[in-house]
């Protein structure tokens, strides 16, 4: 779908409605990537081989980098890093519940399936943002797409190999049945602001169009590998996008922010303060 919407201009030029829609798009991009990265790090010393430890760590680092790009864009609208991450209430976050679920040690199939379902959705979402009417979104897409290509390739190649082994296929199928309903929450709305996101040309595809494309791509690839895709599943609840999350998120958030709280911090620490020599 081509858009004829006018460029929304600089962050400071947005009307209240435009800013609300831009934020709605940015928050899901940032929160999804951030929490996906956080969960990936569980695998960095637990994946099946040293190479997979490194691959998953690298993917985690990519997603953290992308989260940073999106949170930077949100900061242009007047937020601070502290308020966005460390001082936010867990229920302020709007990521899909797919990315907040914990992993069980040894269940590598679960990690691969989650990565695959997420990365296909991410690929579609990024394409739909390429021509965004908001420049800070548009300008970040190319860099992120270049890095995401490898994530998809990684997930697909693992699924292709696991499909060749009976035991591994069974675990993939089990993970697929469990995670598919959670993946559907990626396409759930955050509220009535959704229409503005497409009407203002911030994103070129509606949630339902993205869902359709995702379901087709996922079904086509996974069926080819011999898996059964639970296409009649309903989105899992809670859905995340509406600020409602599973209990797993609350404990993860507690863990993520514990150092900040325990040290009595009131500002985020950077790798190197600018005044350091």
């Amino acid at each position: 779908m081509s858009t004829t919407n006018a460029d929304l201009g600089e962050p400071t030029e947005l009307s209240e409605d435009e800013q609300r829609a831009v934020e709605a798009q940015l928050f899901r991009l940032a929160d999804d990537e951030f929490i996906q990265a956080e969960r990936y790090t569980f695998w960095q010393v637990r994946a099946p081989t040293l190479e997979s430890d490194l691959a998953v760590s690298n993917n985690a680092q990519d997603e953290l980098g992308h989260a940073r790009l999106w949170y930077d864009a949100i900061q242009q609208l007047g937020y601070s890093e502290e308020s966005l991450i460390y001082e936010s209430d867990p229920s302020d976050f709007q990521h899909s519940t797919l990315v907040e679920l914990p992993f069980e040690e040894g269940d590598w199939a679960n990690a691969v399936v989650r990565a695959y379902l997420y990365d296909v959705a991410e690929d579609i979402r990024l394409s739909a943002l390429e021509e965004s009417s908001y420049e800070p979104i548009r300008d970040r897409i190319g860099r992120i797409q270049g890095e995401e290509e490898y994530h998809l390739e990684h997930a697909r190649s693992w699924l292709e190999r696991m499909a060749l082994d009976d035991d591994a296929s069974e675990r993939v199928q089990h993970a697929l049945d469990e995670l598919y309903p959670y993946a559907l929450t990626l396409f759930e709305p955050v509220g009535d602001v959704e229409d503005d996101i497409t009407n203002l040309g911030i994103r070129s595809m509606s949630l339902s169009e993205m869902h359709t494309e995702w379901a087709d791509r996922v079904e086509s690839f996974l069926t080819e590998q011999g898996f059964e895709v639970p296409t009649d599943a309903e989105p899992a609840t809670p859905i995340g996008r509406d600020n409602q999350h599973t209990d797993h998120w609350h404990s993860l958030h507690e863990e993520m922010t514990s150092t900040y709280r325990n040290l009595g911090r009131n500002e985020a620490t950077l790798l190197m303060d600018e005044d350091d020599e």
Binding site: R20, A24, Y79, S88, D92, N243
Partner: peptide, 14 residues
Amino acid sequence: MSSDYDRPRADPDA
């Protein structure tokens, strides 16, 4: 501003 995204706002005077 009232919105669905009620994370703490930055201090405008900061």
